[in-house]
Design a binder for these strands. Structure first.
Lengths: 345, 345
DNA sequence: CTGAAAGCGCTTACAG
DNA sequence: CTGAAAGCGCTTACAG
């Protein structure tokens, strides 16, 4: 199907009474061709319902007009919004999107990258589970990372000369924490996500911003941060309960939107009312946050996706192979609603 | 990048001291080859960091090991969950996923399909904006729909001999409506989604199930159904307000999860408390629904995605080109929570 | 402006 | 078991 029956440029050429080369010129808009024969070829192509074989085109022209997007969790709305923006932008610029979901697994990420490389994608948009170049096996570094145009988003990998599009994790965490401290809270915990005991760069930066605010306010150096693998519901529940059982906590900052559902359920079971008994702020504004009046940090997903695509395509279509480290930090927005309240002991 | 520098099987062959054909046999695991030379080739390949060019492989073998997924709205969690399941299943079976977001636009859908066809995908997984074959221009029907393996999901197109994987829209709507009627409600409205004034098949079936329950209970034949384009926030808000201003409504069934956020906000502005002043049930269980105690219909996204991939791959790998209409209806689950309450005038 | 030939990197018959 | 040749469907020089 779709193969044996397919008509090729050869048949179009025959029908139009020209050579294959000429038919190609008419269809592909390259080279010189008289308007008259062009029309003749186009007509023949239409009559035959000719669909050009992009595989063959790519083979010859060495460009697949395809971009890969590799994300750790496509079901997370944050990545969903970014992928949607990328798809649209890429399509507008004539590129298709090949997508891979690594599930936060490093091995899977490497497998995906290798597959994408072999598929000859023109470039790769990556939110990696790796934090440092040194963690990546040399053969991938050499035959993939240094051979394809890469743009990193949301998560950077240190020591690569790539463009990275991030959001202001440290600053926003600092700001949110400071806001909550300003409300009189001193016992502020954070919940981030981890997978196989590794915590993403992004969450680490947020933790750092949080601790900076704590320190500045004279509230100690460590703070109280836990990380959970939210896909392990039972374990997550257990850890959240331990957090609330054994620690005095009057405010919680959630560093990953995937956790908030579970947290709300647990607060509910414990009859903890927001914001009367506990204050909450979360990353990534979700559909229900407005209704629930949850204070949230809204990251610029659309912009991040578009900028990543633009940078990558620029690199792909550039004449030189220049590589240069460039980190672009996009501003997030703090949407203050009513989930954080002045603390009274 | 990634191209000029790439090493080909020719270089591997040279290094291993064999012909290109033999090197191919060693790498691709086809044909007969002695274990000894196989090892020699593999070693040469590894030393050169050889990555096979799948474009060339596909060209020759006439199989791209790539499946296309075309969805109307990738940002909708429902489709997000399906796409995630598809990606995983496809990867496990050795296929990559090319993704297209049609934004509920028919023209865009056709453009995407044409692009995918020209990319020689092995098959297409489609949630279409078309309801009927007759709505699709003939040339696409002929050169795409009848030339590629298709499996439809969530939304069926009538008159094509395809496998369609749907969920039980009619039945669940009937059941939800009956449940609400059982609670004593007589003024039940529904809200579905539309795009450019076209309402999807799926929503239409849900409306039909709703009306059937109404009729059966002697509550008239029409019911009160509106459809909104939820991306047009202002217009959506206006219509929802009109619904509540000019009609007596004690219960609302929401047929598309993208609308619920906006609806909750409006109910909130109007000081309508769920379930005291108004009962609510919605399609597609979302992260916050448990916390908010919203009664929801949970569709089997994962199963739908997996089954769609399995059916498509079965078709792709089958020897015959047999096409046969087959509609598989998957069961959804009604999660009764506390957003619907006994009606008191 | 047009055509014949070569070639992109593989795999598939065909010999040996 | 291995190699030389042909070919997948295009595009790219090279002639004319």
């Amino acid at each position: 199907m779709g193969k044996e029956g397919s008509i090729t440029i050869k048949e179009v050429a025959k029908k139009a009474g020209v050579s294959v080369a000429t038919a190609g010129r008419a269809m592909g808009n390259y080279g010189r061709i008289s308007e008259e024969t062009r029309q003749r070829v186009l007509k023949a192509a239409e009559e035959l319902d000719y669909v050009p074989n992009k595989l063959a085109q790519s083979m010859r022209s060495r460009s697949t007009k395809t971009i890969a997007v590799v994300v750790p969790d496509i079901q997370n709305n944050f990545f969903g919004a970014i992928v949607a923006a990328m798809e649209q932008r890429a399509r507008e610029k004539g590129y298709a999107i090949l997508i891979c979901n690594t599930n936060e697994k490093r091995e899977l990420e490497l497998d995906c990258l290798e597959m994408l490389a072999s598929k000859q994608v023109d470039g790769i948009l990556l939110a990696s589970t790796f934090v440092d170049k040194s963690e990546i096996p040399g053969r991938y570094v050499k035959s993939i990372f240094y051979k394809f145009p890469f743009v990193l988003f949301d998560r950077k990998i240190n020591d690569f000369p790539f463009v990275s599009i991030l959001s202001d994790n440290y600053n926003m965490a600092y700001r949110v924490t400071k806001y909550i401290i300003g409300l009189g809270h001193t016992d502020i915990a954070t919940i981030g996500s981890e997978k196989e005991h590794v915590v993403s760069n992004t969450v680490k930066e947020r933790e750092a911003g949080y601790r900076a605010a704590l320190r500045e306010a004279g509230l100690g150096h460590d703070g109280l941060s836990i990380n959970v693998d939210w896909k392990e519901q039972r374990e997550t529940e257990k850890r959240l309960n331990i957090l609330l059982d054994y620690h005095k906590v009057s405010a919680i900052i959630v560093f990953n939107n995937s956790i908030i559902g579970e947290l709300l359920n647990i607060l509910n079971k414990r009859k903890l009312i927001i914001p009367d008994n506990i204050s909450i702020a979360t990353w990534d504004d979700e559909e229900y946050d407005e209704f629930l009046k949850i204070t949230a940090v809204k990251q610029p997903c659309k912009k991040m996706g578009e900028l990543a695509v633009d940078s990558l395509i620029e690199r792909i279509e550039a004449d030189d192979d220049r590589m240069e480290e460039l980190t672009i930090t996009l501003n997030s927005t703090l949407i203050q609603r009513e989930s954080c309240k002045i603390y009274r002991a």
